[in-house]
Amino acid sequence: MTVVEAAGLSIVFGSGTQQTTALDGIDLTIARGEFVSLIGPSGCGKTTLLRAIADLERPTGGTLVVNGTTPEAARLARSYGYVFQAPALYPWRNVERNVMLPLEIMGVAAAERRERARDRLAQVGLSGFEGRFPWQLSGGMQQRVSIARALSFEPALLLMDEPFGALDEITRDGLNVHLLDLWRRTGMTVVFVTHSIPEAVYLSTRIVVMSPRPGRIVDVVESGLSAERPLEIRETPAFLEVAHRVRTALLAGHSYD
């Protein structure tokens, strides 16, 4: 079953001489249960592609189908959870109420909201922090709250835009392990934007390599690594071989003009 299907997708911002082609001729199919990373240098349109899937940007050409329908209909049906680059928590709400926010909007009963919020916070390892406020947490903890918030209504599709980009490497490693575990347990589909090769290879079943100006897909690397991935896998020859393929594709698509 296909979750995302893009054919000849293009997005052009602005008009006239100010015109920028963010995405050009994107063909991509993502099946249910996949963990797909979009990787590329800044300006390659990876975030724009993710935002288009989420109906936060409108395609200017080609077709884009999400969950068998238009991105807008998929958004209105609340079929995805979105984790932004920054935690984007509401500072006037405590941790628990931040996680309950989407449930409030979706009209879930109060008792169930609380129960689900506690459950999701436990999933991201933040039990006991329900009453804290965002400013009382570290950056990594804030981002975990925002993941719990995106998971609160159990979307089958999780879109993540460089969620760990602002975090230190040790925190990022921990969250990567956590995320992979979460993906295996829930069987959801994940589309993950990153500019880190090790992160993309460690997490993904498939890695979509993109190049800038205009944003294009230069290669799609199948990982072939087993689903069981301890962090040490990053030093194995199999892992390094996949990383090498990704790096080669990135270099092929990259120009220094």
């Binding site: 989420a54 109906d55 936060l56 984007a88 509401y90 909007i105």
Partner: peptide
């Protein structure tokens, strides 16, 4: 715009955007 995008991903109504953001 980020805080507004969050609301958009929940396809929140205009009233929700007002009352909760």
């Amino acid at each position: 715009s980020l805080q507004l995008d969050v609301m958009r991903t929940y396809s929140a109504s205009g009233w929700d955007v007002f009352a909760k953001l």
